[in-house]
C-alpha cells in the first residue's frame, strides 16, 4: 500500500494541483519540480489511491469502456465489463521506443511464428495517468513521441509490417529536479499545471513529516487505518466536484479576467487561458461554489501559467513572482470583498 495522500504534510499547492486534475482530467496533468526528498514521488503514487475506479471491458489492452471501442487486433472475446483502479503507469527513463508505443511481439514471432502486436505503455495508460519521474532527463526521441501522441490522442504504430492504431488519452504527470536539466518548452506546455516544491523550512513541519513517515514505516496497517478515512472523504469530495463542475456557471467577467491575465503575461498560445479557466472551474467545484469567481482565478493562476511564460534570463525572481506581480497589477494587491 502506498503512503496515504492526506497524510502528506504541507505542500498544499502540489496537493491541490493533483486534486484538480483528478476532478477534471482535461486540465492536462501536473508537473512537479523541486528539491530531492520533498515528497514529489510520494504524492504522485498516493494520487493513484485517491482516483475513483474506471469501468473497462475485461482484458482490453487499452482499457476501453465499451466493447465497440476495443481495437480489433486485441481480439477480445469477453463482453464483460469490470471495475478497476484508474491506471497510473510509470514511464521509466531508459525506456525504449518499442516499449512506449508497442511493437511486434518478438516472443510470439520467434517462438510461435505469429505476427502479433504487443501493446506498450501508452496503451496501458489510456484513460489513466502516465507518470514520468525525472521527466527533464527523458531522452529527446521519447519526448517527441509523447508530444505527438498527447496532441492527437492516438498512438499509431507503423513498423516491421505492423499497422496499428489505438486511442491513447492520458494525463501526464511529471516530476523532476530543475538543477539536473531543463524541460523543452513544447513539453512544458503539455502540462496543465506546474508546481514548485521546496523542503519545508519550518522545523515543526519537518518534524511532523518525519514523525508520520516513521509511523508509516513502523506500523503500516495502523497508519493506513488512521488516514484511510480522510482519503475516503477526499475521494468523495472529488467525485462530488466532478459532478458539480458540469453544472458550474462561468460569468463573462471571469473569461475576461483569464484573457486579460494571459495577455498581460504574454503567455504563448491560447492553452494558457483554457487551462486557467478549466482549473478555476475545478477549484470552484472543489470548494463547493456555484460560480467561478475572480478569487478562484487568482488562486490558480500561478500554477496554471508559470511554466508558460517566455523565459527572461535577467528576471532572477522567477516566473511565480511574475505571475503574482501581474495578478496584483490587474486585480489589485489584495482580495477584495466583492471577490
Amino acid at each position: 500500500m502506498t503512503f496515504p495522500f492526506s497524510a502528506i504534510v504541507g505542500q498544499d499547492e502540489m496537493k491541490l494541483a493533483m486534486v484538480l486534475t483528478a476532478i477534471d482530467p482535461a486540465i492536462g496533468g501536473v508537473l512537479v519540480f523541486g528539491d530531492r526528498g520533498t515528497g514529489k514521488s510520494t504524492a504522485v503514487r498516493a494520487l493513484a489511491g485517491l482516483l475513483p475506479p474506471i469501468t473497462q471491458v475485461e482484458g482490453c489492452p487499452v482499457n476501453s469502456a465499451d466493447v465497440k471501442d476495443c481495437p480489433d487486433w486485441a481480439e477480445i472475446g469477453s463482453k464483460r465489463t469490470v471495475k478497476r483502479p484508474t491506471p497510473v503507469v510509470d514511464l521509466p527513463l531508459g525506456v525504449s521506443e518499442d516499449r512506449v508505443t508497442g511493437a511486434l511481439d518478438i516472443e510470439r514471432a520467434l517462438t510461435r511464428g505469429e505476427k502479433a502486436f504487443q501493446p506498450g505503455l501508452l496503451a496501458r495508460a489510456n484513460r489513466g495517468y502516465l507518470y514520468i519521474d525525472e521527466v527533464n532527463l527523458l531522452e529527446d526521441h521519447i519526448v517527441d513521441l509523447l508530444l505527438d501522441v498527447a496532441q492527437s490522442g492516438e498512438n499509431v504504430v507503423e513498423r516491421e509490417g505492423l499497422s496499428i492504431r489505438h486511442p491513447a488519452r492520458f494525463v501526464l504527470v511529471g516530476s523532476g529536479n530543475p538543477e539536473e536539466g531543463e524541460l523543452r518548452p513544447q513539453l512544458l506546455d503539455r502540462f496543465g499545471l506546474s508546481v514548485e516544491v521546496a523542503s519545508p523550512t519550518d522545523i515543526g513541519q519537518r518534524v511532523e513529516v518525519i514523525r508520520r513517515r516513521d509511523a508509516y514505516e513502523s506500523d503500516r496497517a495502523a497508519f493506513l487505518k488512521t488516514w484511510g478515512a480522510e482519503d475516503a472523504a477526499l475521494r468523495k469530495r472529488i467525485l462530488a466536484a466532478r459532478k458539480a463542475v458540469k453544472a458550474l456557471e462561468t460569468p463573462e467577467q471571469t473569461l475576461h479576467d483569464c484573457a486579460e491575465l494571459c495577455v498581460a503575461l504574454g503567455s504563448d498560445g491560447l492553452r494558457g487561458e483554457l487551462t486557467l479557466l478549466k482549473a478555476a472551474r475545478a477549484l470552484a467545484a472543489f470548494e463547493g461554489d456555484t460560480e467561478v469567481a475572480r478569487r478562484h482565478v487568482r488562486k490558480i493562476a500561478p500554477m496554471a501559467l508559470r511554466h508558460r511564460l517566455r523565459r527572461d534570463p535577467l528576471d532572477e525572481a522567477g516566473s511565480s513572482s511574475r505571475v503574482n506581480r501581474a495578478l496584483s497589477e490587474l486585480f489589485g494587491a489584495f482580495q477584495t470583498a466583492a471577490e
Binding site: 530531492r36 526528498g37 520533498t38 523542503s199 519545508p200 519537518r206 518534524v207 518525519i210 516513521d214
Partner: peptide, 30 residues
C-alpha cells in the same frame, strides 16, 4: 521505541547543517 524529542532533535540538527532533504533525518532515525 523512539523517545518523542528524538525526532525533533534530528530535524533540528539536519536544519543546522543545511540538509534540505527530509530523507536524511529519516535515515538517521533508522
Amino acid at each position: 521505541r523512539v523517545p518523542a524529542p528524538a525526532i525533533a532533535d534530528l530535524a533540528h540538527t539536519a536544519a543546522a547543517l543545511g540538509i534540505a532533504s527530509l530523507r536524511a533525518p529519516l535515515h538517521a532515525l533508522a
